[in-house]
């Protein structure tokens, strides 16, 4: 869909959606949000960009770039569970650390965030893949 209006908007929309998706991901621990919703938002932003500048090269390039995200996401999510098993009492047992960053103060970080980041990456990868593959004409022979 090569219209100038959509192309102008798509650049801005992509950046906005990616930034907001990270925001939603981070606020997800105690408030509405989280990895799944963040992943959907990020995927939506990427898909809008591909729709606006639709060429065959861009499509396959995006698909190739997104492919590792699924695996990385699954590894992170599984890793957070296994960390709970190694350091804590049970699978997925939440482990919390205080991260001291000079000048900025202390960050309270934990494995639930790691899990959410894994979900975020996996959902982004799968959403983009599914939508872009649906855009092609599938042949049922």
């Amino acid at each position: 869909m090569n219209t100038t209006l959509l192309q102008l908007a798509a650049r801005a929309i992509r950046i906005m959606m990616l930034v907001i998706s990270v925001f939603v991901l981070l606020r997800g621990h105690n408030q509405p949000g989280g990895g799944f919703i963040g992943g959907l938002l990020a995927g939506g932003g990427i898909v809008i960009y591909v729709i606006a500048f639709h060429t065959h090269q861009l499509l396959s390039k995006t698909l190739r770039a997104m492919a590792p995200l699924r695996v990385i996401g699954l590894v992170l999510a599984l890793g957070s569970g296994v960390l709970g098993m190694v350091l804590g009492k049970s699978f997925l047992h939440a482990q919390w650390f205080n991260l001291n960053i000079p000048l900025l103060g202390t960050l309270h970080m934990g494995t639930p965030l790691l899990f959410d980041i894994g979900v975020y990456l996996a959902v982004t990868g799968v959403m983009v893949m599914v939508i872009l593959l649906l855009m092609e004409d599938r042949k049922w022979n």
Partner: peptide, 15 residues
Amino acid sequence: MIVFAPIIIPLIFII
């Protein structure tokens, strides 16, 4: 802990 293994093992092999 072994109760989780039937879930974790297939997930590892999916990855």
